[in-house]
Design a protein around this nucleic acid. Structure first.
Lengths: 189, 189
DNA sequence: AGTGTCATGTCAGTTACTGACATCACCTGC
DNA sequence: GCAGGTGATGTCAGTAACTGACATGACACT
């Protein structure tokens, strides 16, 4: 039986994540200590650091699944690199359904308010670009084109995501992403 | 007269920067404490933090001048956004003459070995993209195209820089950048 | 000489993060 | 049932990044 004592309540990671986002929203990231988050989740600071590599990471654990889905959307093969990238972008769009938009907005508002969190987000994007580059070269794309196509794909994704969570935006993620891609092709035509 | 006592030797920032890069190269970033850097520069830890906002920043102070030059290369006006971006890229190429390549390689080897430093570098690039976006909109480019063109420009720069500091690379920065840009245009044609 | 200014030194404190070891619920074999 | 193993958690001590408050000392100006 699960007691009410804090230890062994189960779902420690989720409790920590929820407590953290809640506190960040009300007190700000810098104004919240890890000890506070842990206490709010009925755990200790040490346990927090067993679940997350550092304080920032509590907002980025979903990143692993994100990268997996993104890569999973890559077609097995295609004639040109950008066709591969567009396939991955289409797959990623599935990760951002309408019902997730409010949560994404909340999370993004916290990140936008803090440099350290922006850095972490950029690192995740960069790591995604690296993984994409590897996947492209594995499909026969030369290294330079692969890196460029991957970076460009990430740029399209980031730009689209920023628009999607922007105040007042109504279009779906997929619609936005298609529009962004079309505009980029027009720019470089 | 400048005594030899450590205080008031002048050039504190530069001494700290040199000491830091030297120690990072031999002991690694994590293996070097701020106290060590300060001692090597004949200063105290507290003084280090008066010159640099944090430990990472000691490797990134040039970033401000970099951003300034990059923006300074922007033509006053042009018909399409990418022409503006290409102008800025040409200006930036002047910041990386051959004699700077060894130093850039050393610095980059330190950054490549450490996640925290990569994060900071990505933040600088992101901040450059934001500044570029602003400059483009100020020249009449619509917001979405400006953001996309700016991000793309930064991608071209980053890709080019990575090639330039790569082992065995002989081409000049400008040559590499032109090649990267041409390849990107081919990709999206 | 007197005075102000500015970079630096000194010191105490907070917080992120880590290693070592103890504890306690649960499960497993018997 | 009960002895022992396992894994998540707690406890504690320590390091290092970073900050605020205040002292100090060289220099410039008068």
């Amino acid at each position: 039986m699960m007691g009410a004592m804090g230890r062994w309540q189960g779902g420690a990671s989720e409790r920590l994540r929820d407590a953290a986002l809640g506190l960040f929203l009300t007190q700000g990231y810098d104004g919240t200590t890890v000890a506070e988050i842990a206490a709010a989740a009925d755990l200790t600071e040490r346990t927090f650091f067993r679940h997350f590599a550092d304080k920032r990471e509590v907002l980025f654990v979903d990143g692993d699944e994100f990268e997996r889905v993104f890569l999973g959307g890559l077609p097995d093969q295609a004639d040109d690199p950008m066709t591969l990238i567009v396939g991955a972008l289409d797959g990623a769009a599935g990760l951002f359904p309408e019902e997730r938009r409010p949560w994404s907005r909340a999370r993004q508002s916290v990140i936008a308010a803090n440099h350290a969190l922006q850095e972490r987000e950029l690192l995740k994007m960069s790591s995604l670009a690296v993984a994409l580059t590897r996947a492209l070269t594995a499909r026969g794309v030369d290294a330079a084109s692969a890196a460029l196509a991957a970076e460009t794909g990430v740029t399209v994704f980031r730009t689209s995501f920023a628009l999607w969570v922007a105040e007042g935006e109504r279009r779906t993620f997929k619609e936005i992403q298609n529009a962004v891609l079309a505009r980029l092709q027009a720019l470089l035509a």
